[in-house]
């Protein structure tokens, strides 16, 4: 009896993940290989279509831009938060957690109000006399990027605060007292120690952007179609399930490949493991 206690306790969760996730997702991937036109026909169709290649490239570009901006903004913010006095730190962390716990629809909706044709940004610019006509900001790649940066900066900040807090003040002061200016301290002490955290943050933001649906749907629409919105359209509007499954497979492969590559990079770049 005791020999199987572990399995008995773990089996409900194991079965749920096997039957509810592994099997259905494997079936989705499998259907893209058993089509009449040959084993790789759906992939030839995907990469043969200029429109779909554009969507894939756009999704990669947008995700890379969001990741780069979130890394830059998140790193500076997390650094200042990690060195803030206790009470202020708690307030700043609450201010970062609150948007994170607020749903993606609400947060994307906020940018719909700000960037709309009669939105706050346009009316402010007109009132200031900077522009005379409302500017088309929604349904552009820029609006999707801005809203996604908004979505992911809190995640990046919270990921990095923990990592940066772990760098002792003494280390930074030692570097300064040994004659390094603040730029040298930053690039030679703080940055290398933060690399593992930066990698985790980058993976979270990139895969999150790459597979997002609500934000590109609301702020990009048909004009700025991304992999997530294209997949939904293929599955639920045109009911081309083979095509939707192909997009799903490409998303799974890219996501898992990136996580594995970043894991390997994190192990190699982490100064603590050398």
């Amino acid at each position: 009896m005791k020999r199987f206690a572990g399995w008995t306790l773990a089996s409900p969760a194991t079965l749920l993940v096997l039957l509810g996730l592994v099997a259905p997702v494997a079936a989705t991937i499998y259907t893209t290989f058993g089509t009449p036109g040959g084993p790789f026909a759906p992939y030839m169709a995907f990469f043969g279509s200029g429109f779909r290649r554009t969507v894939l490239l756009r999704t990669i570009n947008v995700s890379l831009a969001v990741t780069a901006i979130a890394l830059f903004v998140g790193f500076i913010t997390a650094y200042v938060v990690s060195r803030a006095p206790g009470w202020l730190k708690s307030i700043l962390i609450i201010a970062a957690v609150f948007p994170l716990l607020t749903g993606v629809v609400v947060r994307s909706f906020a940018w719909l109000i700000i960037l709309g044709k009669n939105g706050i940004l346009n009316s402010t610019l007109i009132n200031l006399g900077i522009i005379s006509e409302p500017f088309q900001m929604l349904y552009t790649q820029g609006s999707v990027i801005v809203a996604m940066v908004y979505l992911f900066v809190p995640l990046m900040v919270l990921t990095l605060v923990g990592v940066l807090e772990a760098i002792p003040d003494d280390l930074i002061q030692a570097s300064a007292s040994l004659g390094a200016n603040s730029w040298a301290t930053f690039t030679q002490v703080i940055l290398p120690l933060a690399v593992p955290g930066l990698i985790v943050g980058a993976v979270l933001v990139f895969t999150g952007s790459f597979t997002s649906y609500a934000t590109p749907q609301l702020l990009g629409g048909e004009q700025v179609m991304m992999m997530g919105t294209l997949m939904y359209q293929q599955a639920m509007v045109t009911f081309d399930w083979v095509s939707a499954s192909t997009i799903a497979t490409i998303m799974v492969v890219i996501t898992i490949a990136i996580v594995m590559a970043m894991n390997a990079a994190a192990r190699r770049l982490n100064p603590m493991t050398v």
């Binding site: 993940v17 509810g20 996730l21 592994v22 099997a23 259905p24 997702v25 079936a27 989705t28 895969t207 790459f210 597979t211 649906y213 997530g228 997949m231 939904y232 599955a235 399930w241 939707a244 499954s245 799903a248 998303m251 799974v252 996501t255 898992i256 996580v259």
Partner: peptide
Amino acid sequence: LPVLVPELVLGFSLLKN
């Protein structure tokens, strides 16, 4: 795995399969 597999893929697979 549920964190690694994109949510959209899980949702679509549950619908389909």
